[in-house]
């Protein structure tokens, strides 16, 4: 056997590697000198039951499936969008058991028995949710890609203020939060709009909040 050189490649290996290169991918792993990384025989899949927009849904998913991919690819609810897929942009925001989360950073199998509300569950084209109507009225978007996440987030923000959950802009965190533009901007900071429709988004939320208070 040839002794390996200091860069870990044998002379024979180097001479034959040119010819062998094209065939490498077709070789079984056992033919390689390297210890093969044991691949999982079949990726594990598990059943999960959800309630999505009020309707029961039963699916079997690869454990890697995020809630976002379960909604879009398995249940074909494509209103919820995949932006960054890393919890940085908020396009995938949905409500789970009434609370907004990034559906891209949650596994579907972790949601057994949970109730999920997506943009499709808030309103319909014929019967818009007041927040949807306010976004339309105030032009709270340009391309519209971040909009379902913005609207789900905005609906939850109003609930969070109502529930007395404090925010970073509160002067006194022990006091009940008051509705203000500063509060909207801070609480909506997890939803990025690359078109920069922020001022109209704030106007839309302000109007929807006013309607609800009335």
């Amino acid at each position: 056997m040839d002794s390996p050189s200091d860069i870990g490649v044998s002379r024979r290996g180097l001479l034959t590697s040119g010819a062998g290169f094209a065939a490498v991918t077709a070789l079984p792993a056992s033919a390689s000198n390297k210890e093969p990384v044991a691949p999982m025989e079949t990726p594990p899949a598990l059943p999960v039951q959800l309630k999505v927009n009020g309707k029961p849904a039963e699916l079997t998913v690869d454990t890697r499936t995020t809630l976002l991919d379960a909604l879009r690819e398995h249940l074909h609810l494509t209103g919820t969008k995949k932006g960054c897929d890393h919890g940085q942009c908020g396009a995938c925001t949905v409500m789970v058991n009434g609370r907004r989360i990034n559906s891209c950073l949650s596994l579907a199998v972790m949601h057994e028995g949970d109730s999920v509300t997506t943009i499709e569950g808030l309103g319909t084209p014929e019967d818009l949710h007041p927040m949807q109507a306010a976004f339309v009225k105030h032009d709270g978007y340009q391309c519209g890609y971040c909009t379902p996440g913005q609207i789900c987030s905005a609906v939850a923000v109003l609930d969070e203020i109502k529930a007395g959950i404090p925010s970073h802009v509160a002067a006194d965190v022990a006091a009940s939060p008051a509705f203000s533009e500063m509060e909207i901007r801070e609480r909506m900071s997890g939803n990025i709009c690359r078109c920069g429709a922020y001022s109209n988004i704030v106007e839309a939320i302000r109007e929807a909040a006013g309607r609800r208070q009335a």
Binding site: G87, I101, A156, V157, A163, I165, G190
Partner: peptide, 29 residues
Amino acid sequence: LAADKRVRRDYAVLTRAIVAGASGQLRNK
């Protein structure tokens, strides 16, 4: 944790630190 009345009253530094981090969506999870 940030919204707990006892934390807001007696350990406000903890509430302030939590709400200074991440986003509403992430803090919910």
